[in-house]
Simulated scan of single mutants.
Amino acid sequence: MKELDIGSAPLQSHIPYDPFAERPLPGIQPLDMAAWLIRDEAFAGQMALRDRLVAERPEAVLAMEPAARPAAEELLELVLGLVAPGAGEIVTRADGVDVPVNRARPLQTLARLVQEDLCILEKRGDEHVMTAAVLCFPASWRLDEKFGRPLIDIHEPVTAYDAGIAARVQRLFDGVRVGMPLWRFNRLWYVDPDLHQPRSIHERRPKPEPGRGGYLRSERQCLVRLEKTRAVVFSIHTYVMARAAVLAQGLDPKGS
């Protein structure tokens, strides 16, 4: 697999929630559907990177089972209705880039419309399985290792994700209702600000020294139920902030 020189990552200087607030796992909160997709200050830079990844590394950032096409097509129509209602065959993004609406390639189109990464999970037996995904900004995981796997395997090797949490998360996915999304957040410190950080489960993520330097990476993760196919969409909006920006916002890293 060829390497891609992505250059400097576009950073945010503000995050609209406190990523250091402690919430018991899985930390889920209700969300207004109108607030699902976000366009923030890093939109232009993140979208330029997404465009490059889709063009140059599609095998690394896009995956879809043939049976998942109806869900992917439904998701594309949902997103178009939210970000570009009434648009024709071309969507002009907020950064001025024209994106052709290619319904034969729904994932490629979705990847270029919104900042969020989008994973589609469908019920297979007793568990939800990842059947399609746009994953441009992985936080130390690889799509080829998680695609086609159920929830418990997707979260391997997260220490806190034990059998009890796994059962609660599966019930959560079963209970997501159309038009009533849910959301949570996480937080991790990284030594560098790169957005595209695929990493095998067998690799260790380099970590900055606690309390010194590094970059905060926080994902705003949402669960959305599709009405027709009943698939669940797991969306990820990624914030990356330098430690100085975290402190300037008045957030307390609590020694991390």
Rank of each mutant, 00 (worst) to 15 (best):
A111M: 11
P138D: 01
I152A: 10
S200M: 07
A160W: 15
A160M: 12
A132G: 13
D174F: 07
K123W: 09
Q197K: 15
W183D: 11
L107E: 01
R199P: 06
G214S: 04
P138M: 00
G213N: 07
P210A: 02
E127I: 01
R184G: 10
S218W: 07
D153S: 09
C119G: 15
R105C: 13
A133W: 09
D126Y: 02
W141M: 04
V176Q: 00
L151K: 01
V224L: 05
K123N: 05
L113Y: 00
R212Q: 13
P157F: 04
G214H: 10
G175T: 04
D174W: 05
G125S: 07
F185R: 08
R220Y: 10
Q108G: 09
N102T: 08
R220P: 07
P193M: 06
H155T: 11
K123L: 08
L143M: 04
V114K: 00
Q115R: 02
G213D: 03
G213M: 10
T159W: 15
Y215Q: 01
D98T: 01
V224I: 14
W183C: 09
Q221W: 02
V224D: 00
V134C: 10
M180L: 14
Q115V: 03
R103D: 03
E156A: 15
W189F: 13
R171G: 03
Y215P: 02
T109Q: 01
D192L: 14
D153V: 03
A104S: 10
D174A: 06
G164Y: 12
V178Y: 10
V101D: 08
Q221P: 01
P198R: 03
A104L: 08
R212G: 01
R187T: 04
Q170A: 11
L107F: 04
W183L: 02
P198A: 07
D95V: 05
R168G: 11
A104D: 09
T109W: 01
I120L: 15
D162A: 02
C222F: 00
F147M: 05
S200R: 03
W183Y: 05
Y161N: 09
R187I: 11
R124N: 13
L223V: 06
D95M: 01
L143G: 15
I165Y: 10
P138E: 00
H202F: 09
D117Q: 05
A132T: 11
Q115D: 10
V129I: 14
M130V: 08
N186I: 00
E127G: 06
P208N: 06
A133L: 07
V129E: 04
R149N: 10
F185S: 14
G148Q: 08
S200D: 12
K146H: 11
F173A: 00
D95H: 00
G148E: 09
A160H: 14
E209H: 15
P100W: 10
Y190F: 14
C222V: 12
F137C: 05
K146E: 07
N102I: 14
G211L: 07
G125N: 06
L151G: 14
R217G: 02
A133Q: 08
V114Q: 05
V129A: 09
M130L: 15
A111W: 00
C222R: 03
D194S: 15
A163I: 02
L110T: 08
P208R: 07
Y161F: 15
I120C: 08
R220M: 09
R177C: 06
I201G: 02
T131G: 03
D162R: 05
R168H: 14
